[in-house]
Write a protein that binds this DNA or RNA. Structure first.
Lengths: 403, 403
DNA sequence: GCAGTTTGTTTATTCGAGACACAAAGCCAG
DNA sequence: CTGGCTTTGTGTCTCGAATAAACAAACTGC
């Protein structure tokens, strides 16, 4: 009895890492997959064909065209454009949105942004899931799971939203449980995961955006109010022992600053969010648009012309730099990505912000400076929510998919 | 030709994890090794006998005596008391010491503490290594490697000491290179590793002391001056992208506090170290003993009797609590261990410090409090330095040992 | 057209671990 | 003290993921 093994039974253990490489765009061909995985060509070939039969990737049979180098041209590995998707959802202070996200972080379909926000979490999450279920039905694709991004710390392992301040939800709302209930009610038999929006944005940026390749990625962003942080260590979200890490909003950045609800004063939260910029520039928040949009517009239109706006931006930038330097001293990241208002402050005066970070971090001068850049991904929280749903597939494709 | 495999060729991949379990005292018998590794009894047995032939552990042939439970009694796995050792060394502000440390963090021999500190790093490290080589010769044991703990941040991958302030070394001294040179000159053909003393203390406490079982262990300690921090994540030291993480000394804990050399004021460094306590109590540092010893003695003898000392301790304790709360908000550890003066402040008034941490950390009340305890290991930096040397053996015993 | 280079596939082999049967060594009930 | 019951330890067969090595394919450049 000979042991002729079919191709499908080989390379099982390398399947997850291989899919992750394709997913993050680091394995365009079988040849680089071979070196990236550190396996033989035989194994890489088996893995690729297995992923193909699972319907996750495609292999160009046409040779790759002008390779520019010697040797047999390699066939291109791409994400199967007709493959399964993850259902991604996001709630924020003034609206929500659902989308379908394929491997590689590609948005396949999104609902229009909705701007009504019911106060009851079960109601709003039910609406999002219903909208997502419509998208799924319309697409006709299989769904691997669902992820939800919320503007709150999410405690693990309970899956509860601890500070959904701007949603008028009660603190401690069991969002993951609610999300899964709603998925079940909508007839979607897929697991649902929840996470903090900034955490998920950082994860998405690490895999598909400005954070690619960073081993210790720090992400700091404002929403409409307050400041959130996230850390991605070696490709995995670091959210502490209970999901509550990177609560960076209460670092002191101005000892004589505004009082903060935490009991201290001059916290990053109240000194560098959109309201802080408007306030420093002597503007009252208007009724039109979110605070973030108002602050962004102020920077875009009057930073060059109004000295008061310029001075306010500089003051807020300096405080942000001080806060980032404090985080650098504690976390020693190799890259920092900014989102929300902070990315516009960086754009307004990159040298000032980078200089402030470098000057106030202990090893800023001695040991090279940390790159500080803006996030680059549209809908990064949505894409990050999808990453949560994709994660089991990335960890073990055979176990996670029915095939 | 039959394929009868000898025992030694099986269980190779589980060898490292198994040794780590025995090393950290979590695998007293083959039976628990089986469940802890998640392998079959056959594999666990093969692994144990392999570790035995490597000379790392011993297996009691006598049955285990009164087991208290049903079934065949299991044989005891212990660390071979005659096995190899690691050479551990520590330099601090007023002295140095060398020791031999076996698996399990057991000190087999130490040199007496030396209190002369040459200003030249090459000279002092040479003296330590020479002393260690004497210990090794006297013991007649094989040596797996050498580790050195220094009171400075150690930049990776260069292995340079960035702020050896209290040693009068120049900043950026290439300590790992010097250490390895000295090892070679002493005829010790083993690799040398260097690390920050608080980092190494945290590692040792995690594996053999008060940090056992913690998944996210935060360690904060004073030496004679300043404050150091360390984080052990899932059993591995987290020292950031360049070894410079957990530089916690410049968190602001008193906006109106003492000026600090970093340019700010009221930093943890200058507000909670031994000098800060002496100062707050209105005492001048005396000529006898280190600052740490003086501050400790002050607490031990006059905390109960002198209201000024008590008030000073409370003030410093409150600031420490504020600093720890800041770290809790960023790192969300599941345990905090204190060393140096901080452990004596904790001992003086545990409730006050724990209450301060809880009150000022964002999720302190809502999501359970973080346990704050004192370190429990003597010579934890030395033991931690040895852990560095043992690490390759723990990762892959067969590759790291000549056998 | 041929040498050289890189990519992909086929076949046989290696080797770590699991399944299973069995043996050993204790407790306990009668 | 003898025979169940339970748990621990060992030997044998088998499985399966990956490697090695040989071969085939497809391109560049002379």
């Amino acid at each position: 009895m000979t042991h002729t093994r079919t191709r499908l039974e080989r390379g099982r253990n390398a399947l997850g890492p291989a899919l992750e490489l394709v997913h993050t765009g680091r394995a365009p061909t079988r040849a680089v997959l071979t070196t990236a995985l550190g396996v033989t060509r035989a194994t890489a070939g088996a893995v690729a064909s297995e992923l193909q039969t699972l319907g996750l990737i495609t292999v160009d049979s046409r040779p790759g065209g002008a390779t520019g180098s010697h040797g047999r041209p390699s066939h291109r590995l791409s994400i199967d454009p007709g493959g399964p998707v993850a259902l991604a959802a996001q709630v924020h202070a003034d609206g929500y949105r659902a989308a379908l996200v394929g491997l590689g972080g590609q948005l396949h379909a999104t609902t229009p942004a909705c701007t009504t926000v019911p106060a009851d979490p079960r109601q709003i999450i039910g609406q999002i899931v219903a909208a997502g279920a419509d998208l799924l039905r319309a697409s006709g694709r299989p769904c691997v799971g669902a992820g939800l991004a919320v503007p709150s710390a999410v405690a693990e392992p309970e899956g509860t939203a601890l500070n959904p301040l701007h949603l008028a939800w009660r603190a401690g709302a069991p969002v993951r449980e609610i999300f899964n209930d709603c998925l079940a009610e909508a007839g979607l038999a897929v697991p649902g995961y929840c996470g903090n929006d900034v955490n998920l944005a950082a994860l998405a940026e690490h895999r598909h955006g400005a954070g690619r390749g960073a081993a210790h990625l720090l992400c700091v962003a404002t929403g409409h109010r307050g400041v959130g942080g996230a850390l991605v260590l070696d490709g995995r979200l670091h959210s502490g022992s209970a999901g509550l890490a990177l609560e960076v909003g209460h670092l002191t950045v101005d000892p004589a600053g505004r009082p903060c609800h935490c009991g201290s004063r001059g916290c990053l939260d109240v000194e560098t969010d959109p309201l802080a910029l408007l306030d420093a520039a002597g503007r009252q928040p208007g009724p039109e648009g979110s605070l973030l949009d108002q602050a962004r517009d102020l920077l875009a239109t009057e930073y060059g012309s109004d000295p008061a706006v310029r001075a306010a931006a500089h003051a807020v930038t300096d405080r942000l730099g001080l806060g980032l330097a404090g985080l650098v001293n504690i976390l020693n990241p190799d890259r920092i990505i900014l989102g929300g208002l902070h990315r516009w402050l960086l754009a307004a005066d990159p040298d000032r912000l980078r200089g402030a970070v470098q000057a106030r971090s202990l090893w800023g001068r001695r040991s090279g400076t940390v790159p500080v850049t803006a996030c680059t991904l549209d809908y990064n929280s949505l894409v990050g929510a999808a990453e949560l749903a994709w994660q089991p597939v990335l960890d073990d494709p055979l176990a996670a998919l029915p095939g």
